[in-house]
Simulated scan of single mutants.
Amino acid sequence: MQLTRKGVETKRRIVEGAALEIRSQGVFSLRLEDVMGRTSTSKSQLFHYFPGGKDELLLEVARYEAARVIDDQQPELGSLVSWTAWWEWRDKVVARYRAQGGDCPLHVALSQLRATTDAAQTVAGELIGQWQSQLAAGIRSMQDIGEIRPELDADRAAAALLAGVQGGVMIFLTTGVMDHLEAALDEGIAHLGGAAAVEARPPRPAAAA
């Protein structure tokens, strides 16, 4: 469906409104009437842009939240050209999930798309692909300046680092414990650069007594 500029803006407003509803009340309580009220749209408008109803809207919310995962890591994720930059990216990832808490809108939206499993997997795959690609680009940049050994497979190393991060995220979402995510990032970066990476890590605040 070809949309006018106004149509694009209306569709975006509906998606953002639905995302806010999920953030405030959870996906299980999400009603299309609430989305319409929040976004000042009619039922006919909503079904014009989302003829598949709630499942189609949830899929677009998942795409929106997936894009936010990448956007929230910028500009650090796109500028991994020094060990300082890698540690700044690490801190930004941790800060994002700490601020978000245990309720991940992307995870919630994807988990509820039972009727569109293939589409949900596509969204998740696109997110992982973009994230891994930018990590691999950072590794290659560090190889170019001699900070990472040239024989390291950048794509495979990026995949391993991202797998550790995602595992840490899932443990955090399940338990509320951030330690595993931090360990995955710390050990992953240290594995890439060895002593040089570890030495570049900024000092951490002392734990409270």
Results as ranks from 00 to 15, higher is better:
I70H: 09
A109S: 10
R201G: 02
I139Q: 04
A99C: 11
I148P: 05
L77G: 04
V35C: 05
G102H: 06
Q73L: 12
A109K: 06
Q130S: 14
V165P: 04
R5M: 10
R98C: 12
A95G: 10
L152T: 06
R63H: 13
K11E: 13
W131Q: 10
K54H: 03
V81T: 12
G164E: 01
R204S: 04
L80F: 13
V61Y: 04
A190S: 14
A200L: 01
R68S: 10
Q45H: 08
V27G: 00
V169F: 01
R96H: 13
G26V: 02
A157W: 04
A207S: 13
V15H: 03
P203S: 08
A62L: 04
L3D: 00
K54P: 04
V35L: 10
G26R: 00
A115P: 01
Q25S: 10
A196I: 01
A207M: 09
G164Y: 06
E65S: 02
E16N: 05
L127Q: 08
D186C: 04
W83N: 09
F28L: 14
A119R: 08
T116A: 14
Q143Y: 09
F28R: 15
G176N: 07
A67E: 14
W86Q: 03
A19E: 03
Q73V: 03
G193F: 15
V108T: 14
G26W: 02
E16I: 14
G176T: 00
S79R: 12
T116M: 15
V15R: 03
Y64N: 14
D179C: 07
E56C: 06
L110S: 07
A190L: 05
R114N: 13
E199N: 14
Q166C: 12
A183R: 10
Y49I: 01
L161D: 07
R149V: 01
L110G: 02
L161Q: 01
V8A: 11
